[in-house]
Design a protein around this nucleic acid. Sequence first.
DNA 1: CGTTGCTTTGAGAGCTCTCAAAAGGCGTGG
DNA 2: CCACGCCTTTTGAGAGCTCTCAAAGCAACG
Lengths: 186, 186
Amino acid sequence: MPSAFHAAGSEIFSQGSEARSLYIVKFGCVRIYRLLADGRRQISAFHLPGEVFGFEADDRHHFFAEAVGATCTLSIRVSATTELSRELLPLALRGLVRAQEHLLVLGRQNAPERVAAFLVDMFERQGGLDRLELPMSRTDIADYLGLSLETVSRVFTKLRERGIIRLLSLRTVEIAKWRSLAEMCE
Amino acid sequence: MPSAFHAAGSEIFSQGSEARSLYIVKFGCVRIYRLLADGRRQISAFHLPGEVFGFEADDRHHFFAEAVGATCTLSIRVSATTELSRELLPLALRGLVRAQEHLLVLGRQNAPERVAAFLVDMFERQGGLDRLELPMSRTDIADYLGLSLETVSRVFTKLRERGIIRLLSLRTVEIAKWRSLAEMCE
DNA sequence: CGTTGCTTTGAGAGCTCTCAAAAGGCGTGG
DNA sequence: CCACGCCTTTTGAGAGCTCTCAAAGCAACG
C-alpha cells in the first residue's frame, strides 16, 4: 500500500482526473470540495485519520481533494473485480448517510445551529475528548457550512460569550456546556 | 419481488424503523427526507421510475420515505451475504455523488440558481423531453432546495416572465431557453 | 356552486453577506 | 529576545436576499 505525504494545501486529486484508487487518512485532515465557475466553494466533507475517501461513481473524480494541514495518506488500488466490494459498500453507505444528514444542516438550519452541528460532529469523531484541535481554518469551516467566514467567526464569539465553549487558542476548542450545544442541533 | 402500491402522501418507511429491503420505483415518485424537532423538513432526494432507494448504513432507516403521488414500488430483500453487493456499490456511489453535488446547491447557490439546478436535473432525468410534468408540490420543491415555498413560487414566476420557462399548467413546465437555464447553474 | 388545498403576490422584518478595518498569532530575521 | 511582516481572525456597519405573515387567486372535486 503506497503511502504519500501531502503538504498543507496541496492537491491529492482534482475534479475530472482519473479515479484509480481509494485513500485512507493516516494523519492530518483532508477536505473534499467542489467549485462553482465564479469560485464559490462547497466542502462536502472533512476526512480525519482512519477514514476512507475517494469514492466515485465512475472512473473520473467529481470532486477535489486537498490536504488541510500536513497529511499522510495510504492509497489502495481498487479494480472493479476486486474482492473488496463487499467491504466497500458499508463505507460508501456510511458516506451517503453522512452527506444526506449534512443536507439537512445546509438546507434547514441557521448559522448557530450549523456551527453547533459541526462542533458536535467533530467532537464525536475525535473520540469524545473534551478538548478539540481543529485542523481547518474558519474559511474552511465556512465553506463546509455554507456560511461566510465572518459569520462563522461571529458565532464562535457568541458561543464563547455564552459560556458554551472555551477557546484555548484560535483552533483549540473545549466544550463547557455539552448539553447546550447538543440542544442547538435539535 | 413483492410489489406495493402507495397512495399519495403515504409512508413507505420511517426513520428509526428496521431497514430490511431496497426499493425500486415502478411508477410515481418518492421523497426521502429528514425532520428537525420543530418540524423543519429537508428532502434529500426525489426518486423517479427505475431508481433504487432505501440504502442505509446499518439496519435502521435514518430517513423517511413517502409517496409523492400515487406510486408503485418493488421491494428487494437484501441480506449482507447476498451476491448483490457488487451491483449495489455502483448505485450507492451514484447516490453519494448526487448527494454531494446537492450540497453545493444548498450551501453556495442562491434561490434562482437552486431552482434552475432543480429543473435541469429533473429534465435530464426524465429523458430530455422538452415538457416536464412535476409530480411534487411547490412545498416539496422548497424543502428539497432549502427555500420557502413562497420563494420557489416567486422564482418560477420570474423565470416565466423572463421567457426562460413556460407553465402549461401549475406543474407542467416547458423549457423555452435551455441555454439560459443551464447558465444559471454555472 | 361551495369547499378545500395549492399557488401566487404583497409588505415588512430579520438573518446573513459584503466591504472594510482593526486585532491577534506566528515565523523569520535582525 | 524583540521587531517586522504576513496571514488568520475578529469586529463593525450597511446592504440585500430570503423569510414570515397575510390575503387573494385558482383549480379540482363533490
